[in-house]
Design a protein around this nucleic acid. Structure first.
Lengths: 256, 256
DNA sequence: GAGTCAATAACTTTCGAAAGTGGTCCAAAT
DNA sequence: ATTTGGACCACTTTCGAAAGTTATTGACTC
């Protein structure tokens, strides 16, 4: 029904560099590389040094960096070129907060406006995501799956808010989401996935969304995003109070 | 105390093109031009045609457009160059909504965190803004003052949220604010200023902010931003129900 | 008259070189 | 020992031409 392929880190980045899609390939490679920590916080990005690696000229790299500067992944100073944006707990906190604000609003609207098609798409996205997460929990191998998980994670959240009715809001959310991911990758060894927490949280969001329970959905999203702040992510089991019924269902396995 | 100079449209744009500030001048000219309707909805932006006017080469124009594409002011399609983003009532509605969401959140935080310095800065910003607005109301000449009003309008809202504690949130708000302004300029002949409404609304926001009345401040912001939706902006007096005490004070003149 | 097709024109994108800028290193001067 | 000056080096930015792409025109065909 849905195919889960093993996708290693370098392979994903490599793939993006190969695909001659309509958008510039070096841009995508840089963007992914920045999100996934290929360049460290504040590291200089020197077009001439990177051109062989991404096989393109420094000009197109410069153009890509200008774009990325606009998105906040790199910073530029006149006559000093480009650097990967500086990470800190503070920037991470801000990114999580912005993501939360936007997702909260967009989700509320989507729950009001979402039609049957949306429910189906969300259901599908959740199943795919849940499957990957199950794989990660069962094998205990987060590192190999994490890129693919990240993709499905995005797909789930994107689908959730897709019915919000505002392309601008979705765009702003995507930007905040990717920024959040970048800082999460830098902050946590497991890139923001937690064996125990994440599965249940996604299920809680999904259940609330399908049940059109706006308040519960917002609460679930808040829990999902906010826990990162506390450095509360680990593979250890949780105190029982944070385990909802939905979480328990998730821990028991995917049974749809 | 504060100097109000007559500033015409072309003069502002011209000034920006002259100043050899650290950031690229053509970028600023393009950005301002797009916001203020120099290029119409969906109009093609051809570097070669614009280079004489902004006296620079097409390369730097291209770079500027790439940046602006990232910010959503222009759109680009592979091998088809750049166009001014397409305006519509829908995009305007979305921009107003996004601005509202961000300002609401940021203002709430600022009201919690703002210190004495912030109060002073906000007070100063509000006075400057109120003075320009008073000038506009008294002379009845909105068109000549509108660029300057817009600057003070931004300064007021920027100061309001400046104490929110998140540079990322402020950046996102600025982007949304400018996008909102662009669509407002396109939609309304008076560029979004209303003789009667705006003065009172800003005062209501200011009062609530200084009084640390978070709920009232959010409500005032909502009114301020939302009224645009309804096409409810005109120079005509309003139905009384929307006139708050603060509005009446504003109409009576600035008396600080 | 409508529909191809090739030739031309207009524009976009990419490229590599030239010009410009900031930083470093080392020798000479204080 | 510290400072000054300047030659060098690495990198950034800008430029204009070359290559590539799409749009347009007009002659030719059916």
């Amino acid at each position: 029904m849905f195919s889960i392929k093993f996708v290693g880190c370098d392979q994903v980045i490599g793939k993006l560099s190969d695909m001659a899609s309509q958008t510039s390939a070096p841009y995508d490679v840089l963007r992914q590389g920045l999100i996934w920590g290929r360049w460290k916080s504040g590291e200089r990005l020197i077009p001439q040094h990177l051109k062989e690696e991404l096989n393109c000229t420094s000009s197109v790299l410069r153009e890509a960096m200008v774009r990325l500067a606009g998105e906040g992944f790199v910073v530029s100073e006149k006559n000093h070129g480009f650097r990967a944006v500086a990470h800190s707990q503070e920037t991470f906190r801000e990114a999580a907060h912005l993501r939360l604000v936007l997702e909260r609003e967009a989700a509320e609207l989507a729950l009001k406006n979402g039609d049957f098609e949306w429910e189906m798409a969300l259901s599908a996205a959740h199943q795919k995501l849940a499957y990957v997460e199950q794989q990660m929990v069962q094998t205990g191998n987060t590192t190999d799956y994490v890129k693919h998980w990240s993709l499905q994670d995005w797909e789930f959240h994107r689908t959730l808010i897709s019915a919000c009715g505002s392309a601008l809001l979705i765009g702003a959310y995507k930007s905040a989401f990717d920024t959040f991911r970048m800082y999460a990758v830098a902050e946590f060894p497991d890139f923001g996935f937690s064996n125990v927490l994440t599965v249940g949280e996604h299920l809680a969001i999904y259940d609330a969304a399908i049940g059109r329970d706006s308040a519960a959905c917002v609460a679930a999203i808040e829990q999902h995003v906010t826990l990162y702040h506390d450095g509360n992510r680990s593979a250890e089991p949780l105190p029982t109070k944070t385990r909802s019924a939905a979480t328990m269902r998730a821990l028991g396995g995917i049974t749809i």
